[in-house]
Simulated scan of single mutants.
Amino acid sequence: MDERFTFNEDVGNYDKWRPTYCKELFNDIIQFSELNKNKKAVEVGIGTGQATMPFLITGCYVTAIELGKELAEYSKEKFKKYENFSVYNTSFEDFECDDSSFDILYSATAFHWIPEDIGYPKALNLLKNCGTIALFWNKPFVNREDDLLHQKIQSIYQKYRPSNDKLLENDSARYEKISRTIRSYGFRDLQVKLYHQTRVFNSSGYISLLNTYSDHRSMTESTKQLLYNEIENAILEHGDVINVYDTIDLYLARK
């Protein structure tokens, strides 16, 4: 299965457990783009709308694009009272619109699904001159070396999904790579900002969160259940509380 469609399988769970983004991030985007009711925005990969409301309440017209049919229908219903909102059930690659149509294009933890050589040129074309691109990702981290629970969970992952990859809470090489990519396609005035937040889960809530991740949903059912059972038991043994440390990286630039 195309992993992009795994988000479409359990929309209610996705909306409940996926993180929202901090107020400071939206304030910075709105200030940078000078967003107001006279402008037009396009959101790439709306999902269930975790990042949509702050744009809608500026009064700008938001056109959302969503590949998953159930997700698109969910967001259409969720924001139905807003006359400044519409959603298209299609891929960004297939989305049809005149060039220079939007003042801002933004995407929340979704733009990596689009091939780079298609996504960035198309974003540039859709934006008006001096229009803003705002791309941001939330990266949850549960591997702090001084946390015995997180160490235990990593050992469980090594049992069921062995990997030599080193997980980094602040990945400066990643930030630089994305920055170079954005500049290479002609965007200017690039700003990169980081935001941090902590979420607290009990064992059942954390398993629900894991089940919103495409790489977890695509595992074989038997292996996934063994993984989830051991992680849940580990959290229960540590007081039924686990902290998730989020780092959100934001990239702002202009056409």
Rank of each mutant, 00 (worst) to 15 (best):
K78L: 04
P54H: 10
K40W: 09
D28L: 11
L67Q: 00
G12S: 15
K23T: 15
N84P: 02
K80R: 15
Q50N: 15
I65H: 02
A72W: 00
A41D: 02
F111P: 02
P19S: 12
D94H: 10
A110L: 01
L71G: 06
F79H: 01
Y21C: 04
A72P: 02
A110H: 05
S100I: 12
V44W: 03
T58Q: 13
L71E: 01
I30A: 13
D2V: 10
I65E: 00
E34H: 07
N84M: 11
S86D: 04
L56I: 15
A72E: 01
L71N: 04
E83R: 12
C60F: 00
T52L: 10
S101L: 12
S107K: 02
K78S: 11
P19W: 05
V11G: 08
D98Y: 10
L35V: 10
T6P: 03
D28M: 10
F85L: 00
P19I: 07
K39F: 13
S75P: 04
F102I: 07
K39T: 04
T52D: 10
E24Y: 13
L71S: 02
F111I: 07
Q50C: 11
I57C: 12
T6A: 09
A108V: 07
A51L: 06
D15A: 14
K78P: 03
G49F: 03
K76Y: 06
F102E: 02
W17D: 07
C22D: 09
K37I: 07
Y82N: 05
A51P: 01
S101Y: 04
D98N: 14
N27H: 15
S86K: 12
N27I: 10
G12F: 11
K80F: 14
A51N: 03
G12C: 15
I29A: 03
C60I: 08
P19V: 12
V42C: 06
K23D: 09
F111H: 05
T48I: 09
F102Q: 01
E70K: 06
K16G: 14
F85M: 10
K37L: 15
Y106C: 03
N13K: 12
F26V: 08
T48S: 11
K76V: 07
Q50P: 05
Q31S: 10
A110V: 05
L35P: 00
W17N: 07
T90N: 13
S86T: 09
F7T: 02
K81C: 05
F32H: 08
W17M: 15
T6K: 11
E3I: 12
Y106N: 03
G59L: 12
L105G: 07
I57D: 12
S91Y: 01
F7E: 03
Y88E: 03
T52M: 10
P54G: 09
T20K: 05
R4Y: 08
D103V: 04
Y88F: 14
K76M: 11
F7P: 02
F111R: 05
G49W: 00
E70G: 13
N27C: 12
E34S: 15
T58R: 09
D15H: 09
M53H: 11
F7W: 03
G12I: 14
E77R: 06
D15C: 07
E3Q: 08
C60P: 00
G68Q: 01
V62E: 02
F92T: 02
K81W: 08
K40V: 05
V11R: 06
W17Y: 15
S86I: 13
M1L: 14
N8R: 10
K39L: 08
I65G: 00
C60Q: 04
N84I: 06
F55Y: 06
K78G: 04
N84L: 14
